[in-house]
Design a protein around this nucleic acid. Structure first.
Lengths: 138, 138
DNA sequence: CACTTGACTGAGAGTAACTATCAGGTTGTA
DNA sequence: TACAACCTGATAGTTACTCTCAGTCAAGTG
């Protein structure tokens, strides 16, 4: 059993966000002790894990709530939940592609600047060294 | 030369967002025609491209503005800009790692549900088929 | 010439998902 | 008795849009 602080550390989510998510109904099975303190079980951590996963792939909280509600509803919703996971995976793969593309842009820029710097150092004695430097290049 | 609409289509950024970015000072060199209509040059598209890139990697608009201002300032800021690109790349690579991890979670879930579905179908005649189904599994 | 289209402007409200701050309350331990 | 760690509710702030209204201007078409 874990306190909210321990969960925050373990799962790398702020306490604040965990409470926010709890309030949003994302952790319906977290028990409280006699002092009303949340006691996360290992199974509850799984819920945190999947919520964190869905969020980090950009799933809206509304949609997460729907998924959570399907989980609560029980086994009859398994095919639907399976489909959500597949769709989410698809989305994540697209994000991967997008990220790769943007990394290519950054690689290009890196080289661009690298060359500018190299030429500038080599030719700094040369009044013509500005010849390759576009003015106001991004 | 491109109108804002053409840029929006070409770069897959909404017109609204382009105007928002323009207002934020991200495209300082876009010319206007005699009717005050923005005319994006190919070089301006480069600015759109880098802004889009930085944004999609989570760079804040404030930080983007700083980068843009460095560009405007001219060649003396090249090393600083180079460093920003390197840092941004680092950030993007971290995001890549995070995404990979979350994809692993999703893969796990996919298999989890796949098995549930398979077993459920196979054993649906069997009153014991619930034995492997945790109640309220995420 | 009216009309539509596409561009522009500014102001202002709405949105998501936190994030932070305040204020106040309980409990267990040093 | 002070403190740390948990709780609550309310409220405000943040970011980066996103949307809506309201009004202007210029070019092209029937």
């Amino acid at each position: 059993m874990y306190t909210i602080k321990e969960v925050a550390e373990k799962m790398e989510v702020s306490e604040h966000t965990l409470r926010f998510w709890a309030k949003s109904g994302f952790f319906p099975f977290v028990k409280r002790n006699e002092n009303n303190i949340r006691q996360f079980s290992d199974n509850d951590l799984e819920w945190v894990r999947i919520v964190k996963c869905l969020r980090s792939v950009g799933t809206e909280n509304k949609a997460i709530k729907k998924y959570i509600d399907l989980c609560i509803k029980g086994d009859s919703t398994i095919p639907e939940r399976y489909q959500i996971i597949l769709d989410t995976k698809e989305k994540a793969l697209q994000q991967m592609e997008e990220l790769k593309q943007q990394l290519a842009v950054l690689d290009y820029k890196e080289n661009f600047y690298k060359n500018l710097i190299k030429n500038n150092l080599q030719d700094s004695w040369n009044p013509m060294n500005k010849i390759n430097l576009q003015d106001a290049a991004v």
